[in-house]
Design a protein around this nucleic acid. Structure first.
Lengths: 272, 272
DNA sequence: AGCCGCTTGTGAACGCAGGCACAAAGTCGC
DNA sequence: GCGACTTTGTGCCTGCGTTCACAAGCGGCT
């Protein structure tokens, strides 16, 4: 993304599944051609998204006392094909043991390192509606993760009211508060009309990574990374598939078998 | 993405047991102009996601009385490159006038047709927490869109209570209620442990498209389309970019806020 | 100690998606 | 009515991401 989703969305994605993000204006000034100091950049965005999934699965395994795992097992649990999993893992280094598999602990540590989860990322949520509430309460994740340290809204009634333990500030204070709390990631959960103004303030505050839930195309400087999650778009994509299915239904040839072919490890099938 | 991811995430993008990726694979590159039905299959998923964005932008334009638009204008507003936009539009047919541009009205209609928005998709939301509330109140979107016609939870206190105008039912009634209300899209907004069970019930109810917000890899039959939106994954992807950025920047150790402020690009705001 | 089988890591092929650039096509002005 | 200008639609080329297939490496078994 995707956001790309998801996508992606991914947003993005690609940049993400749904690829998205930084295309905006600027005709790709990316002098990226150097390809030199790209050690980190060498990891494709799609792979990064999957690494996050692997991390979640691995965390679950660790909690259940699983010490070691093979690419086959892990890929099955993550819903990808094992070759892709191995390639993804190879982007971050060689931490497996041939003939044996991977040590869960090691993999967790390494993925966390690559994803930058070793140092906590401070998150600000702007727009404390239903969605903002949900995000504010999200708190810790699979493992620990992203402490929400600042909340903003325009509603006077919300000012100072703690939500999920954090008091709400006015969006005019975004620059000040974000700087003070070293916010690195901003989340926009406002109504569409307010999104761009909020985004501008976040950028002004030095935030370089933004997760946007508002159905608007944000305009940002090239240095800022934006991922978007658009519920309407997600629904419309699904709607497209429904339509396609309906159109195709009369002569429904038992669905494209090739698509899940190599992926679904044996059992993936229909539970229940 | 899916990608998504959206998927990007995508980002990407997302596919349940599998991932996402190039599906649909229709051999023929599609000749437009006729063959109304088979062309839908040839549209790449990434393009579908963008079409949804174009639709939103176009709806806004229509509301402001804009009658006609060029690929350059529209692509600018949608944040993509104009060639890509034209190619995307070409997937659905030739509705532009050379030398002039596209008629907004026509484009809106055609995109809605392709996305299957002409017949309304009935949506069920499962898990009425903060996120579920947000979704239930989402109501209509850009234009009209996806009527939420059913809500489910396990909490006895919620049973029968109307949220956004729709009463909440127990998840055990999913098959019955979904069938009765002809639900075509299911949205899972439950805690992770409940997600798979809910998913199974939705599938059992005949729902073939699922939007999953729970951080779990759902196991579904191949006939079911799943898109996932994982907030943790989105944040981790952003975190990755923060980390990458820090590695790249020689003056890495300053406080994040200070550092980024220093990097603040000249024209902070690009704005439409 | 040496062999065997298992699993990783990766080079190479393949296929899709993106971008460029141009021919086709239609409009406007004269 | 004709020519020049504008913008679409698309063929081709490039690059990325996925998949395949296999050699390399490691542990266990005899």
């Amino acid at each position: 993304m995707a956001q790309r989703g998801q996508s992606d969305a991914a947003g993005r994605t690609p940049r993400a599944p749904a690829e998205n993000a930084a295309e905006i204006t600027t005709p790709m000034p990316t002098i990226n051609g150097n390809g030199l100091r790209d050690r980190a950049r060498a990891i494709p965005e799609a792979a990064v998204a999957r690494l996050a999934v692997y991390l979640r699965v691995l965390s679950g395994m660790r909690e259940q006392g699983v010490a070691s795992v093979s690419s086959e097992e892990l890929s099955g649990a993550a819903g990808v094909n094992s070759a892709k999993l191995r390639k993804d893992l190879s982007y971050i280094g060689s931490y497996g043991t041939r003939g044996v598999g991977y040590e869960v602990e090691v993999l967790v540590d390494q993925i966390e390192r690559v994803l930058g989860l070793t140092r906590e990322q401070s998150v600000a949520v702007v727009g404390i509606g239903n969605l903002g509430h949900a995000l504010a309460n999200y708190g810790g994740f699979p493992g620990r993760g992203f402490p929400v340290t600042a909340l903003f809204d325009v509603d006077p009634d919300l000012m100072g009211v703690p939500v999920g333990g954090i008091p709400v500030d006015h969006i005019d204070d975004i620059p000040k508060v974000c700087a003070a709390r070293e916010v690195t990631i901003g989340v926009i959960a406002t109504p569409p009309p307010a999104a761009q103004a909020v985004c501008d303030r976040l950028v002004q505050a030095g935030v370089e990574c933004i997760l946007n839930f508002a159905p608007v195309v944000l305009q940002v400087p090239e240095t800022v990374e934006v991922r978007k999650v658009d519920l309407a778009v997600e629904l419309q994509i699904l709607s497209f598939h429904v339509a396609r299915r309906a159109d195709h239904a009369p002569d429904a040839d038992a669905t494209p078998a090739q698509r899940v072919n190599g992926n679904a490890p044996n059992g993936v099938v229909v539970r229940r």
